[in-house]
Design a protein around this nucleic acid. Structure first.
Lengths: 412, 412
DNA sequence: ACTAATTTGTAAAGCGCCATGACGAAATAG
DNA sequence: CTATTTCGTCATGGCGCTTTACAAATTAGT
């Protein structure tokens, strides 16, 4: 018989739902939703045996979920086994929808995702947002949201919330963009500017990308490190299926991990930060390329064509990434490292040096490095899905046809 | 209205206690215990208002906790206010006890802590364990435990579990010492060797030290990085009041974070690891001192006496620590960094360079660095308290006079 | 001193939620 | 065509918290 060192959090502290019968009911509603969602289609009896409740209890839970439009009854299952066939249940495709939005440096994008995880409506607008004032960008975004919501509503969905991914630091209240250097945003509270008739949350692009990987990626573990590079280099730390935010919400600043303490100066005030070796600007300079549009695509193209300078630049960037990741892996012992965002597109030329560096420097079995298949879609999908997950995690509130319960910033 | 990016874990997954009425009851028992424990002395009505249950419900919970010996009724409170005075409740000083043990390189120590957190019995044995076979060390430890348990029992306590702190890597099952270089232990399962008639868990010394800091330190936040150095340099990552273990239980290997990628070779296979600059051996060498007994004390003594070589060595070690911590702080955004173990004793000479390095390298407000006041007592106290916390976290099992519920390794 | 007000702890009744056990319904196996 | 198995539901019951009521013990006010 063994004892855990200690459980994550003391019982009774920071609990999402109170320990009352109502709270229990709501948690069980959530368990039913998650179970059906994970299986796609499931009978009441199957749900009951999976979550450990009785068929009778599940029946009443399902009845409530169907009544509130979160589950659908598809009818009798194809019986392959003996006994009365169950009635197939599925997550409803006509209930609440999660609206995701992305404010990129060069585009705006919005999408609606239903509870099943299907993308039901999208809208995109290209054109740089660098150097523009905040208000016009927000106005454009609001128009895109309006259109996507309208289309979703025509499909029988209703918006349960909006999550906005931005390329910058977001405070823990999930409302304020503390700073987004490439948009020139600073201390911008989007709730005031982009007022929508449903709950709004704001999050870092890389974090949403990691969540997308967690929720949508196949075989993605519950503990991993997601690294993505757009302009800066950001990492998201996923621990036990949840994002590690840090005290101020700034966790994951991999770009400013020191790689060589006496290296070149970095605008952040330090020297030899990872960004000085593997940041977009540094790589372009090392590759002998100037700034311009779609530089990542250009890098990939030249590298594929065999350009020696570009390949060397990417190889060196991979080495620097490997050094920084060695530190991160030693500290966090993740199950894997996932390269997302622009790094995914450049992975073929980054990986060899990155992995060899990581292997050389870590004792024992090396931490596997995977490449995201979501690519640039990650942040947008992650944002939309974060709203969907909020509904799945607490269907009770939607049951009252209010909006999903939304407290202040997550505590993990 | 704002939405969290996402809550730590999906509802219904990885829950410690099942979502049944019994589970609810047990969680509420735990909430009562934690509330009384935190306040020291509290009336039923005060508990009720703090945890949000009614007085009637708390009455029945308290009745059960008193009946099982976890709470005591101290009698009427001194009334300072109008109204009938409450009856003071306190955590029992004669119930279950947590037994903590520490296998150090140069000593063995055992102690018993009651639910109130008081140390009720201790035993220590000095003498090196380096190079000895496992069995004789374990036999000695068992004798110490036997003595401490006997004394605790004479005081009306009974052992609820034993937690052993070891200077090495422990697998996530909290049973197996994967390797402890300075003891020459490898894949050692202590449950088999040290068989005791109550639950046993094993943990890393630095981790227990961090937990002690979390539970016993004043003003210690729920998110911090605890750094300690005995032979190697270990860090413990505390997130939201729980330890981050990592996939294999190896999280916190700060000693092998690269400081200078081309630095001196490290036995781990990498180059320029932090240990090559701030490890005990490296510091002694830089200070011009050879190996010997109580080398940390010697360093502190010489540094206090003004020895320039020693001071320089410690200053340089502080700088290297600062570089490694910059990476960790950027990645985790902790509320503070706490120096424990040997680092606490040497803090006066490490801190200046460490803090200046950290300040220089982090943008925005720097992460405060604190020094542990627990010092070398930390790991032992943390181990004993981990058992106590397990009881407080689930008093329901003790109520059945079984041992505290103990699943496999913690999930965070 | 005596009454009014306030607060505490407990007891009885009630309600919500899940478990238990029984039943009809719908399929397969022989 | 019957026996068996499984599914979904209903009635009943247990358990846990809330509500309501009340006695006990204190302070405040006259």
């Amino acid at each position: 018989m063994t004892a855990p060192l200690h459980k994550a959090r003391p019982a009774g502290a920071g609990r999402a739902l109170p320990d009352t019968q109502q709270g229990m009911r709501r948690r069980n509603l959530a368990r039913v939703m998650h179970t059906v969602s994970a299986a796609g289609t499931l009978s009441r009896a199957a749900v009951a045996s999976r979550i450990g409740l009785t068929r009778a209890a599940v029946s009443t839970l399902v009845e409530e979920l169907i009544r509130t439009g979160l589950l659908e009854e598809l009818g009798p299952e194809r019986p392959g086994r003996v006994g009365r066939p169950g009635s197939a249940l599925a997550v409803s495709g006509r209930g609440p929808a999660g609206i995701g939005a992305e404010v990129g440096v060069d585009h705006l994008a919005v999408c609606a995702v239903d509870l099943r995880g299907e993308v039901r409506s999208t809208a995109t607008r290209h054109g740089t947002n660098r150097g523009r004032a905040v208000q016009p960008v927000v106005d454009e975004l609001r128009e895109l949201v309006r259109g996507v919501v309208a289309e979703a509503e025509r499909a029988g969905l209703w918006p349960a919330g909006l999550a906005v991914a931005v390329p910058g630091l977001v405070a823990r209240d999930a409302r304020t963009v503390v700073r987004a250097p490439n948009l020139d945003w600073r201390d911008t509270d989007l709730t005031g500017l982009l007022d929508v008739p449903f709950p709004l949350s704001v999050g870092n692009e890389a974090n949403f990308g990691a969540l997308a990987e967690l929720w949508l990626g196949e075989g993605t573990p519950r503990d991993f490190l997601h690294v993505s590079a757009e302009i800066g280099i950001g990492a998201a730390v996923v621990v036990d299926g949840g994002l590690l935010h840090g005290t101020r919400g700034f966790a994951g600043e991999l770009g400013h991990v020191p790689v060589r303490p006496d290296g070149p100066e970095c605008p952040c005030g330090s020297r030899g930060c990872l960004e000085q070796y593997a940041g977009e600007e540094a790589v372009l300079r090392a590759a002998g390329l100037g700034p311009g549009a779609d530089r990542v695509g250009l890098l990939a193209e030249r590298a594929a064509a065999g350009d020696a300078d570009v390949r060397r630049a990417l190889r060196d960037a991979g080495t620097a990434l490997g050094v920084a990741l060695t530190g991160a892996v030693n500290l966090l012992d993740p199950e894997s490292v996932v390269l997302g965002g622009a790094l995914a597109a450049l992975a073929p030329w980054l990986l060899p040096s990155l992995e060899s560096e990581l292997d050389r420097r870590t004792a024992g079995p090396a931490c596997p490095v995977a490449v995201s298949r979501l690519g640039s879609e990650g942040p947008l999908l992650g944002a939309a899905h974060s709203v969907v997950r909020a509904v799945l995690d607490d269907p009770g509130v939607v049951a009252e046809r209010g909006e999903p319960r939304m407290g202040p910033g997550s505590s993990l």
